[in-house]
Design a protein around this nucleic acid. Structure first.
Lengths: 121, 121
DNA sequence: CCGAATCCTGCACGATACTG
DNA sequence: CAGTATCGTGCAGGATTCGG
């Protein structure tokens, strides 16, 4: 994602939405932050395999999209918290339905590994 | 997209859904095919700027995901039609909500061209 | 402890030409 | 008409290192 930014999508509006939640870790990050304000390393601990670099990148993009807020506490032990914005909150139902759809329709197909439409190449 | 295929997503289910509709032209293609069976060049004509190569690729991936069906008519003038599968049909409401969300929440923000970092007060 | 800066790699995406 | 074959590009994603 982040190919073109959603300056304006001659394609279809869906692109704009995908551009926001389509990052590699965006969705899962949003789930966690939606669940409550989180600190940087806290998120890192929740997502093993996610490097600080990627964490920073994804969080910054979410922030740039106005989905989350970055609060810096100028303390001796640096402390940064990420919380959801009202705008980001509007994504919640959408993400849940997306997840629900996967659970309902995609997951069963993977388990069957059957002929249903010939998954995998 | 198509980085890992949704073999199984240790991440979150949303990834699986995004993997299916997250292609550059997937969503818009689905909208058209959802609207009715379409032929190859017909889709090409609907999507100016989309090369045959990309059209083939995207359609093939959608087919592999069991979202659409590719019907070949062994005629003198080759004819291939793409239609939605029942499984693909289940995506319709999801796509519509995705689009609706963009229209409602994203589009206004772009028009204002205002402070993209701190939305609504 | 929380990042920024730099460098690198691989795939998604794309342009162009050719074929049954 | 409906693709394939070939080649090229840019950006998302990632490892590593440095700074405050």
């Amino acid at each position: 994602m982040r190919k073109q930014r959603h300056t304006f999508y001659g394609n279809c509006p869906v692109e704009a939405a995908l551009d926001i939640i389509g990052g590699k870790w965006k969705a899962i990050l949003l789930f966690h932050i939606l669940d409550g304000t989180k600190r940087f390393n806290e998120l890192g601990r929740l997502l093993p395999g996610l490097t600080p670099r990627m964490l920073t990148t994804q969080l910054r993009e979410l922030e740039a999209d106005g989905v989350i807020t970055r609060t810096i506490y100028p303390q001796v032990p640096p402390k940064v918290e990420y919380s959801i914005t009202p705008f980001g909150r509007t994504l919640q139902p959408l993400l849940q339905e997306l997840a629900a759809w996967s659970e309902t329709h995609v997951k069963p197909r993977l388990e069957h590994t059957s002929s249903a439409g010939s998954p995998e190449s």
